[in-house]
């Protein structure tokens, strides 16, 4: 019988009140990176950076974050800059670039269509108009839709710290749900996408209940380059099935050196499902998510390697 006593706080909390107002906070607008860093240092983890605000304000409203101060970095020129193709073919995307700008950027659509395609599945047009790619990455949701494509493209991130600028692989950036290597005293400056290997074909798959306005139950990005019928480069990345977006080297290893026939793809998909460590929540059970990983990875690979 499921009837059970519920042991919650008794005398300490009077109950629940649904708050309409955002909690009070101090608003500070930084105009430069050094200033943003100084303010972050000053508040020592009690401040939050505000770019598009589409995640931060929701978290503040639902009580998931209650910062003392909000540091608005929207006007820090060094964090903007949009999408630029550097000499050598590397693409630099300013952290403040909005999701809508990425979705519609002609260069990205030509060079790395995987990213704008994934971005187009995110939230709503209104949120994409406001939300930034930097914000999506820094929010570090396991289901963040920009992460699997960028990981599949071997993206790097440029961080501004008080000691200077440093670059690290995006794969090392995520340290847990809602946690990143930024800690409380660094700012994400740009996302760097290396020139893709020749002949790279990539695909993004997202599974949710709805067609849009959907948080991924499972997302998958794969990227494969073949030479003379043999896979020479493979990336398999999963979203929403682990504490961080997850690259699956074991699946990639099963592909490289092989022609990418149905059995290769099935094996890689199986490896990806084994690697997934999904939780059970209102969006889906762990078993279901693992099952969907297998299907989505196989289908994505069929598209690019078949």
């Amino acid at each position: 019988m499921e009837a059970c006593a519920t042991h919650g706080p008794s005398a300490s909390a009077g109950g629940r009140v649904f708050r309409a107002a955002l909690p009070p906070f101090e608003y500070l607008a930084a105009t430069s990176v050094p200033e943003a860093l100084r303010l972050l240092a000053k508040f020592r983890g009690r401040a939050v950076l505000l770019a598009g605000g589409t995640d931060v304000l929701v978290q503040m409203r639902t009580g998931k974050r209650v910062p003392e101060a909000v540091i608005d970095i929207k006007r820090v020129a060094a964090l903007g800059g949009g999408v630029k193709v550097e000499r050598g073919g590397r693409i630099a995307i300013g952290a403040l670039t909005t999701l809508a700008d990425i979705e519609h950027d002609a260069k990205l659509r030509r060079l790395v269509p995987l990213l704008p395609e994934a971005v187009a599945t995110m939230a709503s047009p209104q949120v994409r108009n406001r939300g930034t790619i930097g914000g999506n990455l820094c929010n570090a949701a396991p289901s963040a839709d920009t992460a699997p494509p960028l990981l599949a493209l071997d993206a790097l991130v440029r961080l501004h710290t008080r000691k200077g600028v440093r670059t690290m692989p995006l794969a090392e950036f995520f340290t847990g749900p809602g946690r990143t290597a930024l800690g409380t005293d660094a700012v994400l400056g740009a996302i760097l996408v290396p020139k893709p290997p020749r002949g790279l074909r990539a695909a993004f798959r997202k599974h949710g209940v709805r067609e849009a306005m959907e948080c991924a139950v499972v997302s998958v990005a794969v990227a494969v380059a073949k030479e003379r019928g043999t896979i020479r480069h493979a990336r398999v990345v999963l979203g929403a099935v682990a504490p961080t977006p997850l690259r699956v080297p074991a699946a990639e290893a099963l592909l490289v050196g092989h022609p990418g026939g149905p059995l290769d793809l099935l094996a890689a998909a199986g490896e990806a499902a084994d690697a997934a460590r999904p939780i059970t929540d209102v969006r889906g059970s762990s078993d279901y998510r693992r099952d969907v990983v297998r299907t989505l990875v196989r289908r994505a690979l069929e598209e690019v390697a078949g």
Partner: peptide
């Protein structure tokens, strides 16, 4: 508001 509750089986 402070409320003291005695949780009951539910």
């Amino acid at each position: 508001i402070r409320v003291e509750y005695e949780p009951l089986p539910a």
